[in-house]
Design a protein around this nucleic acid. Structure first.
Lengths: 243, 243
DNA sequence: TGATCTTGACTGATCGATAAATAAAGATAG
DNA sequence: CTATCTTTATTTATCGATCAGTCAAGATCA
């Protein structure tokens, strides 16, 4: 094979690595399998990326910025649009979710594989995963936690953190569609739960998260006022000390 | 070493395997590391569990039933308590969450390690993970999806599935506390977000999920009535076709 | 000429798995 | 009560395969 631009083979290796790492994890992925999938030979990976660890970090670095840049641009636009008042919570939550979900559903490019990789790493306990997640996602987390509190002034700092983590938990699962939603739909049901339709997913998920965030904001200052439809506080707090 | 009862060494191996699998994943875990941690030698694992895969499945099987049994017992008690009317949604959601969160915070026994294992497997794309998750958690999923619809008659079957998946996404993340909640709290904040306090976590998470479920139930039939505090539908549905 | 890529061979380590020997406990028989 | 056999539990030693990483020697293009 004649030498390519250099950049194109690099990307071919990264694409292959993204897919193999996503499917088999860091330890389960072999450089031989990656080289084979990329149509190159194994020493070339060391030529370009030094080591297996270097390749893994390169895979992550290539995609990491893109999502967060898109999130921040959208959020900035929402701030301009709303002027001095706070932006609409629904739009803020959508700005947080949409880039990840769209990437996860992008099967032409390797987006789906990267999505799977992030989901796994976000919940992995090893140092490599934790450091890469923190490096790439703590800044954007703080940005959106602050935005939540702009929309909901009653939301305490700690509750904003919890709300963000809940939102991200949901978003991560939606990034890597497994088809489980369809599996759990009974055959007798009129409509199937389809995790491949981005807009349908967002129309169900954004209101879910926004309602949850508003509930956190109203927690405490609603107190024992009778306007909440159920005896929530006692049921949760008072119950259980015996299993 | 004299031969033990057999059962005690089996459990020692399972405990060690649970911890090592949780930390390094299936491929990253070596039978030698597991044997070393268990205080036995490596071939004994094959004597008791046939193969690495057999050991892994045994680890999973040992814990899988316990959580779901506890969930079903609690749900059954709620049904008896409420009589002919539907049980309180908050209590149903708590019945779903509490066993997993308690297990994840149980550091004396290996519960924390198993929790970490489940979180990883729930989002992993390989066949072993998917089949084990489906075998052990699809039945309980259908039970709680049905319970949600009892509490919220307006909740469509598909929305109940989505609500359940969202709830489980959150619960899974809470099972394996990473301390990220504390990391994301600013030092200036009055209260820290602490993921180690089970009751505090539940008091924030149960209302979040219940509010989300109710929002899904009210989706559509609330329509353009002015009682919802924000222009939700248009903002989510109409926006975006340009990035 | 120099950057890019291929080929092939090799190292040292580690992996899952197996075979064979052994030690203790329990049953059985004289 | 004791000698023998069986079963279960465990160890030592080792096999073949595979892994990441290295090196040397060349090939192909700009």
């Amino acid at each position: 094979m004649p030498p390519q631009t250099g950049e194109s083979t690099r990307n071919a290796i990264l694409d292959a690595a993204e897919a193999v790492f996503a499917r088999h994890g860091y330890d389960g992925a072999s450089l031989r399998a990656i080289a084979n999938r990329a149509g190159v030979n194994q020493p070339l990976i060391h030529y370009h990326f030094e080591s297996k660890d270097g390749l893994f970090r390169a895979v992550f670095r290539r995609r990491a910025g893109a999502i967060n840049r898109q999130r921040e641009i959208t959020l900035q636009a929402l701030r301009l649009e709303s002027g001095p008042s706070a932006p609409v919570l629904e739009q803020v939550v959508e700005a947080l979710l949409r880039p990840t979900i769209e990437l996860g559903h992008d099967s032409r490019r390797g987006g789906r594989h990267y999505a799977q990789l992030v989901v796994t790493m976000a919940n992995a306990p090893d140092d490599r995963s934790k450091s890469l997640i923190a490096e790439n996602y703590n800044a954007i987390a703080r940005t959106f936690i602050a935005a939540f509190r702009e929309c909901l002034p009653d939301l305490s700092p700690a509750d904003a953190v919890w709300g963000y983590l809940h939102a991200i938990s949901i978003a991560l699962t939606l990034m890597a569609p497994t088809g489980r939603a369809g599996d759990l739909t009974e055959s007798s049901d009129s409509e199937r739960a389809d995790d491949s339709d981005i807009e349908a997913v967002l129309e169900r998920t954004v209101p879910f998260i926004c309602a949850g965030l508003r509930a956190l904001a109203n927690r405490g200052n609603a107190g024992r006022a009778g306007d909440t439809p159920s005896p929530v506080a006692e049921a949760v707090a008072g119950k259980r000390r015996r299993a």
